[in-house]
Every structure is written in C-alpha cells, then in structure tokens.
Amino acid sequence: MKKVFIEGAITPEFIAQSLAKHQTKHSIGAHNIFLGQVRADEVEQQKVTGIEYTCYEEMANPKLEAIREETFQKYNLTCMHIYHSLGLVKAGEICLFVFVSAKRRKEVYAATEYIVNRVKEEVPIFGKEILDNETHQWKENH
C-alpha cells in the first residue's frame, strides 16, 4: 500500500523532490499538481492559525487505495501520488498534495479534480481548526 499520511505539513522541498523523481520517466508528457493550503479563515473575529488533522487510518487507507485503483481504471495515467498531513499544519502550509502524470495533458486535469473531490468526500479525516484565542472549532467539508 502506498503511504499517504505524513506527520505535519507537506514541505516545498518534499514536493520538489517528488517532481525530480519523475524526470527519469520519459513516457510522461504532462504532470498536474493540486496543493491544498491551510487558510487563515476568520471566525467571529478570531483567526484560524492552523488545523490539527486526525484520521481513522484503518478505514482511510483502504479507501485511499480504492480511490487510487478506480482513478487508474477511469483515466489513462502513468502515475499518481496522494499525500495528506496528520497533526498540526499552520496557516499557509500545505496539507494535501495530489500529483498525477500522464502521456498527454487532457487526462491529468480531470483526474486531479476527481481524486481531490473523492479524498474530501470519502476519506475519514478530521480537522480541528485552532483559533488565535486558543479555542477551536471543527472543520467540515461542504
């Protein structure tokens, strides 16, 4: 099973290294990347300073594996990577990194959106939004 969950933020260095690893794969003609960044939303005059992510891993991992397999069946991709943070990710940092590659560009746009939507809707990940007055609220995807 591919490792998806990473402790803490996904760093720009990690993303760069991931891209560099694909330079030996010469059948690829197009990459597409989606990066989810933690937003400093304002909630009743308080600002979100970060999100603390937890997940139900025993269900999340098989679900991510199914999303992976179904995406490969639906789109003609060369490779696909999904990474999501666990633990605290501060505002401005990256919490989701979806990276798809194919021979030509058309497939990668649709596949990226398909993966991101399914991860948000179907994977049991929870987000505690930490506010700057040290209270918190719970994030919900809509």
């Binding site: 139900y56 999501h84 989701l96 179907e122 994977v123 990940i125 719970w138 919900e140």
Partner: peptide, 12 residues
C-alpha cells in the same frame, strides 16, 4: 465488531 462514530469529513 469495531463500531466507529465518525463526524463530518474534513480532509484537504
């Protein structure tokens, strides 16, 4: 059985 109560998902 493992029974789990899951709040709304918030990935991404």
């Amino acid at each position: 059985d493992e029974i789990v109560l899951l709040p709304p998902f918030a990935g991404g």
